[in-house]
Simulated assay, not measured.
Amino acid sequence: MTRPFHAVAVLMLGATLVLTGCQVNSHTCRGGECHVTTTGTGKTQSIDQWDVKITEIYADSAVFSVDRSRGVRIQVGRSVRVRDARITVTSIEGETVKYDIE
């Protein structure tokens, strides 16, 4: 009888993560450049000296805000200056965005 309970618990956890806009974030920084992997939108993350927020994710681009700036849409493979940061989007797979910031 524990199998149905486990299935319900897993489904409830998955629904909770979707509803809360769960973010998975990792980054490494060296010499003023950071490599970032993040999933989801809406949460401001402190990356080195910047507060970065992704507000929208598309198949080929994402919208970034740095230190509460206006959102800037950046395509995969492009580098764009947002406030005092230069962001290069390296890949987007579903809700996972990888980018470099310097």
Rank of each mutant, 00 (worst) to 15 (best):
H6W: 09
G77E: 06
S65P: 01
T38M: 06
G32C: 01
I47Q: 09
W50E: 09
S26Q: 12
T41H: 07
A7E: 12
D48P: 00
A15K: 02
Y58N: 15
I54H: 10
A59K: 14
V72R: 05
H6D: 12
G77Q: 06
A7C: 02
D48T: 09
R78N: 13
V52W: 04
Q75N: 14
A85C: 07
T90F: 04
D84F: 01
R83V: 13
C34A: 12
F64V: 03
Y58G: 10
S26G: 10
A15E: 07
T39W: 00
T39Y: 04
S79I: 04
I54T: 09
G14F: 13
C29I: 04
G94K: 06
Q49K: 14
R83A: 15
T90V: 11
Q45E: 15
G40M: 06
V76Y: 03
T16L: 14
I87P: 02
V89G: 03
L19W: 11
L19Q: 13
D51G: 13
T38R: 11
V24M: 07
I54A: 01
G77M: 03
Q49A: 13
K43D: 09
Y99G: 00
G42K: 07
I74V: 15
I74S: 05
R81C: 03
S69F: 02
I92F: 01
A15Y: 12
D67A: 07
V63S: 13
T37F: 00
T2Q: 06
L13I: 15
C34G: 08
G40K: 07
K98R: 15
F5I: 12
V18S: 15
T37Y: 00
T55Y: 06
Q49N: 14
K43T: 13
V63I: 12
R68W: 08
I101A: 01
D100T: 09
V89I: 09
T90E: 10
D67T: 08
L19Y: 13
D60R: 10
T38K: 04
S26H: 11
E56Y: 03
V24S: 07
G31E: 12
A9Q: 12
T28W: 04
D60C: 02
H27W: 14
I47W: 05
R81K: 15
V76F: 01
R81M: 09
Q23K: 10
T38Y: 00
G21T: 08
D60F: 07
L19F: 14
R86G: 00
K98E: 13
S79P: 03
I54G: 09
S91L: 04
L13M: 15
G14D: 05
R86A: 10
G40A: 00
V66G: 05
E56L: 08
K98L: 00
A62P: 07
G71I: 05
I57T: 11
S79V: 06
V52C: 08
T39R: 11
S91C: 07
V52D: 11
T28Y: 08
I74C: 07
I92H: 05
F64K: 02
D51R: 14
Q45G: 01
E102V: 01
D100F: 02
R68D: 15
L19I: 11
G94R: 05
A85N: 08
E93H: 03
I92T: 01
I101V: 14
N25L: 15
G32Q: 05
T20D: 11
S61T: 00
A15V: 12
L13W: 09
I57S: 05
V8Q: 15
V82H: 11
T88E: 12
V80P: 05
Q45F: 02
V36P: 06
V52G: 05
F64H: 09
K43A: 11
